[in-house]
């Protein structure tokens, strides 16, 4: 359906914006390495089904490879910055101080409690879905600490947030058209979108009106 397509396109756009930002500007100011590492973990644990060869569609498979590949590539580009632009790297590390153990632990526990089946594949899938819902927190934390961000960085975060937000009408659509109700995805999707709500508000008030992102 249209919402699902738009959501996936928005997700793709966010990654393209991020890659272009890092490659063109050759600096990583305002981008959280921790959030990017969490995304590598999210995609690697979510798409383990690639190994079972039980593919749903060519579209899904290509997207899965794309998300795993680009998330690893982003981390590599950011690590490269240590040599090519050490000032920018140091500055990023200085601000990227969110303790991700407070996300990983609870997500692992939640995956053990809430899952569709107690198998390795399903536990990893559930872990990834919980972790994705909070993976942006180090990035948002960094943003709130520095109080401002480059316009491109805010476009990246917006596109990334929009992706999960668009999955919500997609789930409503699927509930009516296929009678399908994936409770875990829906709950974590709502949680994820809620975490972005504050950011969305500021993005709407400032960036969309051409004023640049700055926190009050």
């Amino acid at each position: 359906n249209i919402f699902r397509i738009l959501a996936d396109l928005s997700h793709l756009a966010s990654i393209v914006i991020l890659l272009e930002t890092i490659r063109k500007a050759r600096q990583i100011d305002g981008i959280s390495l921790k959030t990017q590492i969490l995304y590598v973990l999210v995609f690697c644990t979510r798409y383990l089904d690639l190994l079972t060869f039980r593919w749903t569609s060519l579209y899904n498979t290509l997207m899965k490879f794309f998300f795993i590949g680009t998330s690893v590539y982003v981390v590599k580009l950011m690590q490269d910055c240590k040599l090519t632009n050490p000032v920018s790297y140091k500055d990023m590390m200085f601000r990227d101080t969110f303790q991700i153990k407070y996300l990983l632990g609870p997500c692992a526990l939640l995956a053990l409690v809430f899952n569709y089946k107690f198998t390795v594949l399903e536990l990893c899938w559930s872990f990834s879905i919980w972790l994705e819902s909070v993976a942006i927190l180090p990035q948002l934390f960094m943003l709130s600490r520095s109080g401002k961000a480059s316009t491109l960085t805010t476009h990246y975060i917006f596109a990334l947030g929009l992706y999960r937000a668009l999955y919500i009408p997609n789930w409503i659509w699927r509930y009516y058209s296929e009678n399908r109700l994936e409770k875990l995805s829906i709950f974590t999707g709502l949680l994820q979108t809620a975490l972005y709500s504050d950011f969305f508000y500021i993005y709407y008030r400032k960036v969309m009106k051409g004023r640049g992102f700055e926190l009050p």
Binding site: R4, D8, H11, D49, R54, T56, S57, N60, M63, K64, F67, Y116, K117, E122, W125, Y167, E182, S185
Partner: peptide, 10 residues
Amino acid sequence: KEEEVEHDEL
């Protein structure tokens, strides 16, 4: 045969 959980979303 055991039922598989289908995840067709990304």
